[in-house]
Design a binder for these strands. Sequence first.
DNA 1: GAGCACTGC
Length: 699
Amino acid sequence: MENPYLAHRKESKENPYTGKSYTENYFKILEKREQLPVFQYKKDLLEALRNNQVTLLVGETGSGKTTQVPQFFVEELKPHLKNKMIVCTQPRRVAAMSVAKRVAEEMDVEFGREVGYTIRFDDFTTNNKTFLKYSTDGMLLREAMFDPLLTKYSCIILDETHERTCATDILMGLIKEIIPRRPDLRVLVMSATLDTERFLKYFEGSPLIKVPGRTFPVEILYSEKPELDYVDAAIRTVLQIHMKEDPGDILLFLTGEEEIEDVCRKLSFRGNEMVDYPILKPIPLYSSLPPNEQQRIFCDPPKPREPGKPPGRKVIVSTNIAETSLTIDGIVYVIDPGFCKQKIYNPRNRVESLQVTPISQASAEQRAGRAGRTRPGKCYRLYTKESYDTHLTKQTPPEMLRTNLTTVVLQLYRIGVANICKFHFMEPPAPETMMRALEILNYMGALDDEGDLTELGKMMSDFPVDPQLAKVLISSSKYKCVSQMLSIVSMLSIQNPFLRPADKKKEADRARQAFADVCGDHFLLLNVYDTYVKNQFDAKRWCRENFLNPRAMASAVRIREQLEKIMKRFKFEISELSPLQKEFQNNIQKSLISGFFMQVACTNKSTGKYEIIKENEKVDLHLSTCLQSKPTWVVFNEYIQTTTASIRTVTEISNYKWLLEIAPAYYDLDTLPAGAARDYFIKEKYENKPKAKKQKRHK
DNA sequence: GAGCACTGC
């Protein structure tokens, strides 16, 4: 039977999108495209698209769905003739970038014109020309804040929806609301083969098309009995594979940087002892590694010990980054101890924390799949089959259920969702988490007592940072330190820029201490930023000497530029205080309090320990703090729970009366629970200022 | 004495 696409190829050698003749490269790629599994389903897909507003596509890795399906839709919908666009979302920037480039090549058009991408800091699209756009899910969500009906698009394709990022979850709910109001809109929801029923139920009545993937079989091997120490078991398994199995690289999943570096050291030590076996080369992989070191995972395996002997073996020891974000070809053996670090939110004390938790079955399948990308492989699960069946959950809970919802709620308000509590989430968050978010936004002045979005709240939603940080920026104008707060907020928005190589911990700590400030860590961040900017002409060398991550610093500069633009759009003056002015320390502290009044701790007079206000949770200052003394009152950026509880990035509050001035509703004595803070305030009210008000109660 | 999974705007 003749493929309609081939027929098209025969009769026309002219590219309908550019008017130019197709290049040879086009036909070469076309042959390969036609062999992708998804190609067989083109007819079905287009038929579903014609007859339904929403279609579901389930496809495994290697099916070609991300690159091909948007092209099918372009042919069918002809957005270029109607001045509309097709958008395809991705949870990660790199994916949006690389797929867009690939598809432009496949379509034989100039990248950035007909086909392009939009991510936070880069927009490679052309007005009135681009008709197929790849975009991060967060970016499309931001567009929805300014254009809630997403009128630019005739077709929206949501990809990787099984990952259930917050942005994708909100977009799905939003699309359900938009659809009746946009009868012309076509939507395709693409996911891996997980939880298909949930999607079918959510998009009731939509057709489902299943596309097989193209991967190799992976043999699953379980432990016979539970392992007491998964790190130890992992090392043993690596060595056994190395001794007994055929050549082929190993991928080992662990939970964090320290664990990974530790295991790499042990593996290379043990490998060196095994002189009768080929060389064993451990390679660490986690996101904060510099790009050139991440590239090491793609290097060739080590040479044989002697000419003619078998080659060595790479062992990539990785966090979850290798589960979704990075694909490594040539992996034959996967070792899965069954754990990862996950963010967990506790609405009771409003604390987000990272905890080592068992992975889900879906995650275990994903990990195993990494062994079968180029040839048949094996996956060693360091837990029993019984444990897999009974202890592991089917799916990892979506991000929406593990996070603080203030940002989500503010975004929904901004988009204009009529009733947030009735918004149709695929998995609605706990009412308590929702109430917490509403309460926090009300304290911050983003919502009024009627529960409506205020002007301040609307303004806050324009900033691509957490609501607290947005609030801090806006109030900094009142305290005449906008410039300084822009720098501090940018530094708080990036990943930890302080490097601490295992063999140079002391030097690194010393370098950091050089930026210390008596007021605390927020001021230290300001010093780091300012000094970086002064040395930007020689940034790389300067960062190396000061143990700072140059990528993180560069991104702080870009974030600051973006935030400054938004401040200027609101006509805020970019005011600046001189460090010599006496208001300098006070006003920066006051700005911080305006957003972080809920993240304040004070020392308990009898124990000397810090307690978080209202929750009365006992905490220590994090080891990294530059504070030498223990100020009575502090404001902090993060609460971390590991073996101990600590607060990180901490600055002194010189005068606790500012709390009452800046956040009177939160510090209302009528509702403030008993605790160290209340004791201070009571003392203030009844002892220090006996005549300030008519005494309601006698002492 | 002991620290930061991964994304995204």
